[in-house]
Design a protein around this nucleic acid. Structure first.
Lengths: 188, 188
DNA sequence: ACCTGAACACCGTTCAAGT
DNA sequence: ACCTGAACACCGTTCAAGT
């Protein structure tokens, strides 16, 4: 009784994320994921509990990737510049992975939410830069404000809700800069 | 050959929205919607094209309702106070209809997006107040900034992404006030 | 130990047949 | 003109049977 493992959890999550970004959420079916990794649907249940669990893993995977990106952006030299650079990297990542971004920020089912510790990791770089800029006691508040604006802007932009006149990149840059200046000045 | 209309598009949309808010998006099935309005699933297709069309109608309905709420909030006396009051009403509405809010702002399928004119109506009160506060030429920019922050904050809050220390209502109030002040001062 | 076909309970959607 | 049961192609998930 041999047991040739023909796939892996990693490959399954990666396939699901690929389908998500390419064809949208409702094309991420167990059957399509299975055939993508070269196996039949029932075999997936050896590695994941169910489809909700799979979506949760995909969300976590995207969060880790975004967290890595933001961490790699901070240079720790100038906190104000870092905060702007992080916000910029945040928007660029979301534009590259719009479906994963939506999954991450607006889980369709509560069980899809990323793990708490992953959320901490995800916001680490921003909170760190905010602490340097605004002081430890105001770090969370400042980080929250920046994240709220950045997420709100990107989310509306990706959803196509913006009746935007000018260049969105300029508007984003302007909003973030204004916010960071206000934080540095002790405003927010 | 009589033809007793046993339901209506309005009743169908209302039932769908009720199910959405009560049991979540994937409980909004054609069968449950149908039995809720006292009919069998195939009959729904006499009034709506398909499930995507139904979700689109639900999103539009929610947008109209939110638009009504925001319009009713503006008093046109003090634009700065109006903007804060509108932002407050925005958050309260979202908290009362979290599932509809998510549907509205993050459509799972592109076909669910609210109609362009409904989007204009939805942002009307905010743009109007912003115009009074910042001038016509900066109105859109100012409105966009406020909406980005408000949506971002509420969205993260509802998704449970906030590692929030203090009272979120206070943090929201503080952020909006700071933003409105900055706009009034010509900052953003 | 992993993989599979068959089966079950569900979907969305179509359509011929009823009134 | 609207409503319905039956049917079709799909889901997610379970499980006994294969190797």
């Amino acid at each position: 009784m041999p047991a040739p493992a023909r796939t892996s959890t990693e490959a399954i999550v990666s396939a699901a994320r690929g389908l998500l970004e390419a064809d949208g959420l409702d094309q991420v079916t167990m059957q399509r994921v299975a055939t993508t990794v070269g196996v039949r649907a029932p075999s997936l249940y050896k590695r994941i509990r169910d489809r909700n669990d799979l979506m949760h893993l995909v969300a976590n995977d995207a969060a880790r990737e975004l967290g890595d990106t933001l961490s790699a952006t901070a240079s720790a030299a100038d906190p104000a510049k870092d905060l702007v650079a992080i916000a910029r990297a945040f928007r660029i990542w979301a534009h590259r992975s719009p479906a994963a971004y939506a999954l991450l920020t607006t889980p369709v089912d509560p069980s899809w939410r990323v793990d708490p510790d992953m959320n901490v990791y995800l916001s680490g770089a921003i909170v760190n830069a905010a602490a340097h800029l605004a002081g430890d006691d105001r770090a969370l508040e400042a980080a929250r404000t920046v994240v709220a604006f950045a997420h709100g802007f990107v989310s509306l932009e990706l959803a196509g809700t913006f009746r935007l006149g000018g260049d969105p990149a300029d508007a984003y840059e302007f909003g973030i800069t204004t916010l960071v200046n206000a934080i540095a000045a002790g405003g927010t």
